[in-house]
Each structure stands twice: as structure tokens, then as C-alpha cells.
């Protein structure tokens, strides 16, 4: 097809022959969009007002608020989905979101190294060092459990929140149980900390390979996964 994807996804008049029986029942009368536009205007004003209020408490909160809103907007409009990126290769054979996530990882890797290396060079504490968490069996078990939950629930953390905002009912139910699960997890975390996590290694790649080596190796691994994902899709399609 010569058309681009964006042109194809536009809603156009049907060219595929359809029977009238299925068409007439399907159409619903178009509602006025004016109340929706007014509601949207009120919501936008409320969002900005809350951001300004946060600035009076702590300017950083306003920044977090803004980043959060942008993140949610991009997530929703781009249909970016971490769940699908890991689920679709085996379930439907599609890897376009897998590749999107890998590209995002590659870009953020470069950004992280730039920020961290700059702090290191100036002798400052490395930003984000507190988030270098131990790798233990808990990582594997937790990942496995989370994976089951996110495929059944149809969304990871950010995906669930985004779809709740979008108004998809199933994810509202998922959010309730997501919160219950988090509470149970927090309650049991002490046990995991004492029995599994304690003493596990914390690995920061630049400590092992040096700054240049770490980013090179990381980008090579991401690039290899990208090629693998690309081949996986074309292989599945030909089956």
C-alpha cells in the first residue's frame, strides 16, 4: 500500500462492501460536542490552577505535576504500552511496541549516562544512585507475578492509570486490586528484605565497565534486541 499509516487510520467512508443489515443497526446518533468542550476547558483550567497552587507549596511539585501530565498525555495518544511490548511478541506476533520501548530505553540510557557522568565528573553525588536496587530472586519472582497480573489486567502501572483516566471500566477494577496488591506487597516486604533481598548485589554498570563501556554495552544489547524483535515479527508473519 502506498498510503502512510497516519492516513490509513483516519476514519473514512467505507470502500469495503457491507450488507445493510449490519450497518443500519450500528450507527448511533451523533451527540453535541459542546458540553464536552466546556468540560474540557474547565478541566484544563483546574489542572493549571492546581499546578500554580503546588508552586506555592514547593516549585518542584509543579514540575512533577507538569511532567506527570505530559507523560500521561503522550502515553494515551501514542498508545504506548509496556504490557503490550512484552506480551504481543508471543501472543499476537506483533513487535512494534517492543521496538518502541527499546528505542525509548536507548534514548533514556544516553540521557541517564549524560546526567550521571556530569555529576561524577564534578564530584557530586550521582543522581538516581538510591534507585540502584539489589538483584535477587525477589526480582525474578516479582517480575513473574507482575507479568501475570499485567497481562490479565490489561495494563502495567502507568497503563492502568492511563486507561482509568480514559474511562475504560475494566481498568478501574484493576486499579482497586492493584492497590490491594501493593498493600499486601508492602506488608510482606520486610520478610523479603530479610530473607531474600539482603546481601544481594547492587550493580551499577559504570562501576563494572567504566562510563563509556557501560553505555556502549547497553546500547549494543538494546540494538541486538531490536534486531531480534524485528526479525521475530517478519518470521511470525510468514508462518
Amino acid at each position: 500500500m502506498s498510503e502512510t499509516i497516519s492516513e490509513q487510520t483516519e476514519i473514512t467512508e467505507s470502500k469495503i462492501p457491507r450488507r445493510s443489515s449490519s450497518r443500519t443497526t450500528a450507527r448511533k446518533p451523533k451527540k453535541s460536542r459542546v458540553p464536552l468542550a466546556l468540560a474540557l476547558a474547565i478541566v484544563i483550567i483546574a489542572l493549571v490552577a492546581f499546578g500554580l497552587y503546588l508552586a506555592t507549596v514547593d516549585p518542584r511539585l509543579s514540575l512533577f505535576w507538569l511532567i506527570g501530565l505530559c507523560f500521561g498525555f503522550i502515553l494515551q495518544r501514542a498508545r504506548f504500552c509496556f504490557t503490550a511490548s512484552l506480551r504481543d511478541p508471543t501472543l499476537t506476533g506483533g513487535t512494534s511496541l517492543t521496538k518502541a520501548v527499546l528505542i525509548a530505553f536507548a534514548i533514556t540510557s544516553v540521557g541517564f549516562v549524560a546526567i550521571q557522568y556530569n555529576a561524577y565528573r564534578m564530584g557530586l553525588p550521582i543522581p538516581g544512585a538510591g534507585y540502584i536496587l539489589p538483584i535477587s530472586l525477589a526480582t525474578v519472582i516479582g517480575g513473574f507475578l507482575f507479568g501475570i497480573g499485567m497481562v490479565i489486567g490489561g495494563g502495567c502501572g502507568s497503563g492502568t492509570l492511563m486507561r482509568v483516566g480514559e474511562g475504560f471500566h475494566m481498568n478501574m477494577l484493576v486499579l482497586v486490586f492493584f492497590i490491594i496488591g501493593l498493600l499486601v506487597g508492602s506488608y510482606d516486604h520486610t520478610w523479603w528484605q530479610l530473607n531474600v533481598i539482603q546481601g544481594a548485589p547492587r550493580v551499577h554498570l559504570p562501576d563494572v565497565f567504566g562510563w563509556f563501556g557501560a553505555i556502549t554495552i547497553q546500547l549494543i544489547v538494546i540494538g541486538a534486541l531490536y534486531i531480534l524483535a524485528d526479525r521475530w515479527e517478519s518470521r511470525r508473519k510468514s508462518l
Partner: peptide
Amino acid sequence: DHSCAMKNVPEWARKVGHNVELEEIG
């Protein structure tokens, strides 16, 4: 009525080579 399906179903069908159209009915 799931907006993600609006994206991934047409994407899959077009990759396979079918004719696809999308219609907003409500």
C-alpha cells in the same frame, strides 16, 4: 470500545495484507 484495539487490530490486519477500515459509531 477499547482504544488500544483501534490501533493494534488495524495494524496487524494491514501487515498481513487485508483491507481495513475503521468507523466510529459512537
